[in-house]
Design a protein around this nucleic acid. Structure first.
Lengths: 244, 244
DNA sequence: GAGATTCGGTACGCTAACGTACCGCCGGGA
DNA sequence: TCCCGGCGGTACGTTAGCGTACCGAATCTC
């Protein structure tokens, strides 16, 4: 099975898994947008006016507590959609969605998505599957943040960012990472040093480079492999239901 | 709006929200079963042969790590369904499901559920809504286990169990609680003592009694109120779409 | 009622991570 | 070119929670 997307198809796997017929019906409602790192797509409690199908952008869902501390509860990339709540029957989003990696996405009005789903679109089945994988991701994060060390979680997060962005070079400050994995900035600095001393990453001001992906995967907690497996299955099922 | 269920309706809110017509069509496929504390409904990786709509039973979803440590990632009661994965397009369950509180549930073959959904049942919409709330629950647990103290999480958990079981008396050992909130047994013992000294709970061998619910709610982290609110909304929407 | 088993209380040393703070450095803007 | 704000390195005291272990009490079994 070739990995090359059909010309008419989006690089977003959710959309790419649709039959050409369905995909073409959606096309007029899909508007390409550029997402820039730091862009806030939704704030907590926002009405969702549009959903986004990332093509090569990566978006993080952040949960915030009363005291201001935050933790990332999910990452969304090519395989999914930002704004799942709309699909699940809600109008507002409980979390902040922030762009982590620059890239393109296809924007669609929430109303258009609702309309498409009402007509019994195959997109429904794909979104259900994606919801399942996303739920698995969040679920794993619960036990991960309960039992795994900062360093192991950091390594997992770096690997996931690498997979999502398909790049070994990540532009981010320790402060941002701290907000993602839910710790202090100083903790990230120490974990960075530890991983650098093990020869797994290289770091500079505002950036981290992964120099030994395999090693970093070993340094990551088991959650990395589990989540990877879940999304590999999702990817397979998306590819299999794809037109030839 | 009376809280008294219609004679024909189940005490499970998901089912109760269906139109009489739809509900009656499902009836032949719904088999009452008694769930006993400790019963393992699914083990991790199991094929899901049946789903369960709890009426007054409470079921916990547990995630387990390689080293054997466990954490509860979700609770399911009257408002939902055990076996969401089936609805989300999966055949196997990633987590263990264990009965926490004795009670009745309605069992339905996975195949029957799939069939019902294929015919475009209103159950679909209800399950989507429930999925949304469940996802919110898991999401909140991520940030909770990252930032809140053992004692606060314990208090939250007790309050949630109280709400689900509608009883101030919970039968459970410290060991079991430890497996739920993902800590040591000894930690639960200490937290129990702390809450008892504050006059919020009473404890005996194999049991905990909540003597001051309001106080315990205060002792719980903010996550309790957030989740409660989410499920209150779900409950409202379930009641509103219910036949009169 | 004796013996076995489970359960809870408590203690000890230990470590990961916290909150905080200070400082030097790099890089962009005036 | 200088300055200033952001960023990262590092340190210090503190603490929550861990792993472990031991003991007595409650409960179950026969």
């Amino acid at each position: 099975m070739p990995d090359k997307p059909l010309a008419a198809n989006s690089r977003n796997q959710l959309l790419a898994s649709l039959l050409k017929l369905d995909h073409e019906r959606l096309l007029p409602h899909l508007h390409p947008v550029d997402l820039l790192q730091g862009d806030v797509i939704y704030s907590a409690g926002d009405d969702i006016k549009a959903v986004y199908f990332p093509e090569n952008a990566v978006v993080a869902l952040l949960s915030t507590l009363e005291d201001g501390s935050t933790t990332e509860v999910g990452l969304i990339g090519r395989e999914g959609m930002v704004g799942l709540s709309v699909f699940l029957g809600g109008a507002i989003t409980p979390e902040r969605a922030v762009v982590q990696v620059n890239g393109k996405a296809l924007k669609m009005a929430a109303a258009d998505l609702a309309q498409e789903l009402r007509r019994g679109s195959p997109l429904q089945v794909q979104l259900l599957r994606y919801t399942r994988s996303f739920l698995a991701l969040v679920t794993q994060s619960v036990i991960c943040s309960q039992h795994h060390s900062l360093e192991a979680r950091f390594a997992r997060w770096l690997m996931m960012m690498r997979d999502y962005s398909e790049s070994n070079t990540l532009q981010l400050t320790h402060e941002m990472v701290a907000g993602m994995i839910g710790t202090r900035r100083a903790g990230v600095s120490m974990a960075t040093r530890a991983l650098r001393e093990r020869g797994l990453i290289d770091s500079s001001r505002g950036g981290i480079e992964i120099v030994n992906g395999d090693g970093l995967a070993d340094a990551a907690c088991e959650c990395y492999a589990i989540i990877r497996e879940e999304f590999a299955q999702l990817h397979n099922s998306q590819m299999n239901s794809r037109p030839t």
